[in-house]
Each structure stands twice: as C-alpha cells, then as structure tokens.
Design a protein around this nucleic acid. Structure first.
Length: 135
DNA sequence: GCCAACGTTGGC
DNA sequence: GCCAACGTTGGC
C-alpha cells in the first residue's frame, strides 16, 4: 500500500467533481515525474486530494481504482492515467499553512516542490495529515 | 496580477 | 550533450 498526493486547481477539477462522477480517471498529467508516480500506483492506494491556488488545502482522500493505462485524452502514448474514486472527505481541510507549521511535514514534496502534481507521500505524513483534519 | 521556480524544448 | 529560452504552474 502506497500513499500519494494529487493536486488540482478546483476551478478546473475539484473534489466535488470527483464525488459527482463517482469514479474518474486522472488525466492531463504532462510531467514525467508525475507520470512515473502514477505508473507506480496500485488499486487500493490512497491519495490526498489537494486543491491548489485559491484554497491550498487537502480536502479529501481518493482511492486508486485501477492500474495505469493510456491517457484517453491524447494519442501520445507517453502519457497515462489511473482511475480514482472518492473515499472520504476530510472533516476539516488541512491547509498548506497548517502543513508548513508542522516540522514533521517540512520534508513533504508538497512543501519542497509544490509544482509536482502527483507526489508520493510517506505513511507517517499521510497519517499526520489525517489526524490534523480531525483535530 | 505578479513573479519566482521549475521542467521542457530546441539550437548549437 | 549542453545550455539558453520559453512556457507553465502555483504561491504570494
């Protein structure tokens, strides 16, 4: 079981959109690092769903629901997607400021390389953020 | 809305 | 194969 963080601008695609659809593929990734991370995902892996730009918060937990496959939005076979289903909405969003305020989370990719749209997250980091959302 | 940081592209 | 130029992203 691995943990991830997937990022989206809520104006473009939000947590609510995923909830509405019930299940959706995560498309539009055009970055090799992010692509490689998606290729490493397995069904059952959990991903923090992060809203960038305006909200800058983790808002929910999505569950990976497929292996990676060819991105249906492009013919370019370099790019892949995985399916996600919404698993749980956080009781309270955990903001970027909250995360930055916690020393244990200062090594997160989100903090160090905020531009990467699909990131690995350590189990401890994942658990910590969930705990913060319940506090 | 601005600007810094990063990744990618393309010329050499 | 290197590096400058460019485009995009996302925090502020």
């Amino acid at each position: 079981m691995n943990y991830w963080l997937i990022k989206s601008e809520p104006n473009t695609y939000s947590w609510d959109d995923l909830v509405k659809l019930g299940k959706d593929h995560w498309d539009g990734v055009r970055n090799y690092q992010a692509r490689n991370n998606m290729k490493a995902m397995k069904p059952g892996d959990l991903a923090l769903f992060y809203h960038s730009v305006k909200e800058k918060s983790v808002v929910g937990i999505a569950e990976c629901a497929s292996e990676f496959y060819q991105d249906p939005t492009t013919d370019d076979d370099r790019w892949v997607v995985v399916d996600f289903v919404p698993k749980e909405k956080l009781k309270k969003p955990v903001t970027l400021d909250d995360i930055k305020a916690v020393p244990e989370l200062s090594e997160m990719v989100l903090v160090k390389n905020s531009r990467l749209s699909v990131q690995p997250v350590k189990k401890e980091e994942f658990d910590k953020i969930i705990a913060m959302s319940e506090a």
